[in-house]
């Protein structure tokens, strides 16, 4: 399969109804394919990433196509041409939840440990919940672990790090089956 001409179109805008409708209308009317996308509401801002494909256009062309919408809806778009994707990680999937009273450095401690062990983060969500007086920090990660890393004690290491931070941690494997 030849490499498609891919672009990442990203936007962050004060949330209101109609953002996806307006953006997808432009993709549709200009014959883009939405190959992959993920969007969510972050602190009242709708944050979206669309990976789109279309042959024979450049990132500047794509940016221009959105200039009208930038004015009418007051949304800033970022357009980036996609070069070659990284190698798709293979291995066992785990969900790691780390949560506890809010304090600086939770994400970084966990992420640095995982990086040092070459454990790949494929999904990350964080939230501050609880009351203003006693906020709780929640972090949920999905990671892919090389089979040769299994049984090397990474789970115990994470539990130790969590204890040092005074947080709780839960690690569970995701089993995938094709029926």
């Amino acid at each position: 399969m030849t490499q498609k001409n891919l672009f990442a179109v990203t936007l962050i805008a004060a949330d209101r109804p109609g953002i996806v409708a307006a953006v997808s209308k432009i993709f549709y009317e200009n014959s883009f394919n939405i190959e992959d996308s993920s969007s969510t509401l972050l602190q009242g801002f709708f944050s979206a990433i669309f990976i789109v494909s279309k042959e024979g256009v450049t990132a500047d062309d794509v940016k221009k196509i959105f200039s009208g919408l930038e004015k009418t809806m007051n949304i800033d778009f970022n357009v980036q041409a996609m070069s070659e994707a990284g190698v798709k990680p293979i291995g066992e999937h785990f969900i790691i939840s780390v949560y506890g009273s809010d304090k600086p450095g939770i994400v970084n401690r966990v992420a640095e440990y995982l990086a040092n062990r070459e454990i790949n983060i494929v999904d990350l969500q964080t939230k501050v919940a609880g009351s203003e007086k006693s906020p709780i920090y929640l972090m949920v990660l999905e990671v892919i672990i090389d089979p040769k890393m299994l049984g090397t004690g990474w789970e115990d290491d994470l539990k130790k790090i969590s204890r040092e931070m005074g947080t709780d941690v839960n690690i569970r494997q995701i089993e995938t089956y094709e029926f």
């Binding site: 999937h93 089993e175 029926f179």
Partner: peptide
Amino acid sequence: IQFREGCM
């Protein structure tokens, strides 16, 4: 129980 499912 939660699994991640696929299907032929």
